[in-house]
Design a protein around this nucleic acid. Structure first.
Lengths: 194, 194
DNA sequence: AATGAATGAATGACCATTCATTCATTTTGC
DNA sequence: GCAAAATGAATGAATGGTCATTCATTCATT
């Protein structure tokens, strides 16, 4: 007698939550507004998530999983840092162009002291940065002085911040271009070189 | 008949607002909680600020003014980029060590899409970055390919993000040290070199 | 008829903001 | 020098709204 759960509704909830958290902040994104945007009853959200915090926390984890998953795939195929950074920045730009709310969502919550990266993703990100560091020091693309912490800042935080400075139109009102992508890759590679 | 406005109360309100916005986010920092923390009546806040948004927005502007003010002073005395970056990073670290809430506050709101840098500070930051770019290209400390946008990312965003990755203990549980300061300066200078 | 997915009114707490009131200080009148 | 009147700084209860969450009810499917 098990009825089918309408997956499109769950998707709409996720999309609405992401959009509203970006626009109004976590506190400003009310459950009733999320439900209204998703065209779903208020109570329906509690079928999948125990609380609003749970919903948003899970969404953040999903988005981070997407990034680490992508990075892991890229690292298997590549033997130089340049070969990892280029598709990684490509991925950020693709996300920024096709799902701008999603990259803003990550950005908003990664900077929120109430949310933190869950232990699982934390471990994976750690491992990936250490791996990058090893490869880069082998190929001499990364200076010896650097630690995994700096690799994280240069390869994850810097590109995301570049995109957000553009979104906020702080220095330029241009939309992200191919040239910008090249600039970001060049800056990352230059910074890693030391 | 003019009574004296108790400046310490206003200071306490500002301090409480900063602390609570950092801890609970803008939406979570209620006026009643701010007033309670500041040991002040709820209505008292409205003597100085028209609304909660006004209060927080003004505080952000104040903090940004502090940074741009410092940068302007530093640039008058210095003729090389190294001579600007070093005291600038020093200033960030000093803020991080002595007023951690304040740097977190800037960090939290600069990343919030509901708040933006007011036109006045915006202009000053623009001008400062352009000036840095000119000096750096003269002294060959900054590669020709860079724009003011990249100078901003490297000299403002990167150091602040470094500090916040530490605050969040993402890679290291160490508190900020003199060695870290040297690392940040080195990374900034290296990145600017291209 | 039975099941359980989906609903949305109801709940109690808390929100930002207001403003009649209180209270400390200053000015005035003597 | 002092009491009374005037001032305006400071208060916090009151307001009307919104919040997250619950759960009795409805409705579609089996």
């Amino acid at each position: 007698m098990a009825k089918v759960i309408d997956e499109s509704k769950l998707l709409r909830i996720k999309e609405a939550a992401i959009e509203l958290v970006v626009q109004m902040g976590y506190g400003g994104a009310s459950i009733s507004a999320i439900a209204r945007h998703a065209n779903v009853a208020v109570g329906y959200l509690y079928r999948f998530y125990e609380s609003k915090y749970d919903l948003v926390s899970d969404l953040l984890d999903d988005k981070l999983k997407d990034i680490t998953g992508h990075l892991e795939v890229m690292m298997v195929q590549c033997s130089t840092i340049q070969q990892v950074i280029t598709p990684l920045v490509n991925y950020y730009f693709h996300l920024a162009q096709h799902q701008p709310h999603h990259i803003r969502f990550i950005y908003t919550l990664i900077n929120d002291y109430r949310f933190s990266i869950l232990p699982d993703q934390h471990q994976r990100i750690h491992g990936l940065c250490r791996q990058l560091l090893l490869i880069g020091q082998e190929t001499r693309e990364i200076a010896d002085v650097f630690t995994a912490e700096e690799i994280y800042l240069i390869t994850v935080i810097y590109p995301v911040e570049f995109i957000n400075v553009r979104f906020k139109q702080l220095f330029s009102e241009q939309t992200l271009s191919e040239d910008d992508k090249v600039r970001v890759v060049r800056l990352c590679m230059g910074a890693l070189k030391g």
